[in-house]
Nucleic acid binder design. Structure first.
Lengths: 129, 129
DNA sequence: CAAGCTTGATTACATCTGTAGTCATCACGA
DNA sequence: TCGTGATGACTACAGATGTAATCAAGCTTG
């Protein structure tokens, strides 16, 4: 169990992430449907969504299932895996690989509320009986 | 206390971060000194370090104090501030702003080692006697 | 003083990213 | 059947990023 495993997909960018989020929410959507979800919020044109979908397919992050003359797009990677990878990356880059340091930092800078702390404590009890 | 404050400096990139780390470790270093610390490790030429230093100065992330015909470079932003901003960004982007979710995720995906867990537990004891 | 080394400034350039336009084609309705 | 709208493929293009070379000017040492 080391933290240096390479992901099978290439790096997902900020803009692409918005698209992934839509597909994680519900897969098998058309480009138009994805656009409905994000174009307004991000001020994108439909063309932009199409580009991002293409790039995500190329990167191996989503699948394009033919459906008539269009595609239904679905994530190929799970959100949890992506999120885990990103978190790991952050911890490696900024906290010397120590997740505990990250938690410590969050606590010190009061990024963690009392509720957060309680929740984490509960979590720990579960993980280390 | 909201989480939308803008940093005064522009975004620091991955490569630039390596340089920042050297300067955080010890400020007032010359380009050559910085290179000594990172060029080997990252396979960089001295020119690369100079470029990164220039960009960091432009971005307002470091100061260049004249010293004879060269400069001594020092961070203008604190490491803790940077790290906090990045953590915040991650939590916002991927965990809907909930830091506890991040910790929960790390725990669930076993990104946390037994040691990490013990350390966090100790931290919590301290924070919530 | 001259030859060379050090150093920042400037320039270079490929790739990635954000954002979008164009175009050919195919299905569908009049 | 014919126009029309939807759709993906391809193209575009500016700005960011990684990585570095070149160049001019000063310092240094013989």
């Amino acid at each position: 169990m080391n933290s240096t495993e390479e992901p099978v997909h290439e790096r997902i960018t900020e803009a692409e992430l918005a698209v992934m989020d839509v597909l994680w929410q519900r897969p098998r959507r058309t480009a138009a449907e994805v656009c409905e979800e994000v174009c307004a919020a991000r001020g994108w044109s439909p063309a932009t969504v199409k580009t991002l979908l293409s790039r995500l397919v190329q990167k191996g992050a989503i699948a394009a299932e033919p459906d008539g003359r269009r595609y239904l797009y679905s994530p190929l990677i799970e959100r949890a895996a992506y999120v885990g990878g990103e978190s790991r990356r952050l911890v490696d880059r900024l906290f010397g690989g120590s997740a505990a340091s990250l938690v410590a930092h969050l606590a010190e800078t009061e990024a963690l509320t009392e509720d957060d702390l309680a929740e984490i404590e509960a979590l720990l009890k579960e993980l280390r009986p």
